[in-house]
């Protein structure tokens, strides 16, 4: 599904060049659940952003469903992203001006779904996530756990084959964190490929493979490991 070859990413600020990723080669198969771990600043989020096509690489190759994406135009990347990738963030990143329902509906709007189709699909997801009684509330009216539920619902509403999660439980207490991880696990079981950045060993235990990053390089990969 995903293949990267020698991915390198550098940031330039004034005269200082910082290397965020160094020759990262990674292969992700359909149905995988990968946890990316490593200390702060090791390049985990940068890798996730590149895989999600919201950031560019400096060198290397990135194949998404066999298609080289580094040379694509922004518009093509947007098209590819909205059809194939869902995002879950540590700080939820819900749009404050939109209700729960509208936040979840947003990806379908951008995909150009018809109103009736959107309604049916959003209602389905809302029911699956057990948030139908809160669908008319605004994000500020929800707890962190509830917000992350909405964020997950929004990420999966368009049935993307790939879900990228950046520390999805980082802002949650353990009970709500586990709740979110169970949801991701369930999605993975139903066939969604998940790549998750996390600091938490416990969260990583839900994945099938753990990739360890250090100073922008993959230093270790464990399959079905017990951390």
């Amino acid at each position: 599904m995903i293949e990267t070859f020698e991915l390198t990413k550098t940031f330039k600020a004034e005269d200082i060049e910082t290397v965020a990723l160094r020759n990262v080669s990674l292969k992700v198969e359909k149905g995988d659940f990968i946890a990316v771990m490593g200390p702060s600043g090791c390049g985990k989020t940068t890798l996730l952003n590149i895989l999600g096509m919201i950031d560019n690489i400096t060198a290397g190759k990135y194949l998404f469903f066999g298609q080289e994406v580094t040379q694509l135009f922004e518009k093509q990347k947007t098209e590819l992203r909205k059809r194939n990738i869902g995002f879950v963030f540590q700080n939820f990143n819900l749009i404050e001006e939109l209700t729960v329902y509208e936040n979840i509906e947003l990806p379908l709007l951008y995909l150009g779904w018809k109103r009736k189709e959107r309604k049916n699909r959003v209602e389905d997801v809302i029911n699956q996530m057990s948030i139908s009684h809160r669908k008319n509330l605004f994000p500020v009216q929800l707890s962190g756990g509830q917000q992350q539920r909405v964020a997950v619902a929004r990420a999966v509403v368009a049935n993307p084959p790939l879900l990228l999660a950046d520390e999805p439980t980082g802002n949650l207490d353990s009970m709500h964190g586990e709740d979110v991880m169970l949801m991701l696990n369930e999605l993975n079981k139903k066939g969604t490929t998940i790549i998750m950045v996390t600091h938490s060993r416990r969260d990583a235990s839900y994945s099938r493979r753990v990739v360890h990053l250090f100073d922008g390089q993959i230093i270790n990969e464990n399959f079905n490991s017990i951390i």
Binding site: K75, T78, R81, R83, N93, I95, E97, P107, Y110
Partner: peptide, 16 residues
């Protein structure tokens, strides 16, 4: 800006 970022990530095009 943050809202715009989210919308872009979710799939909004520049023209939208």
């Amino acid at each position: 800006a943050k809202e715009i970022g989210i919308r872009k990530v979710i799939g909004a095009t520049k023209s939208q």
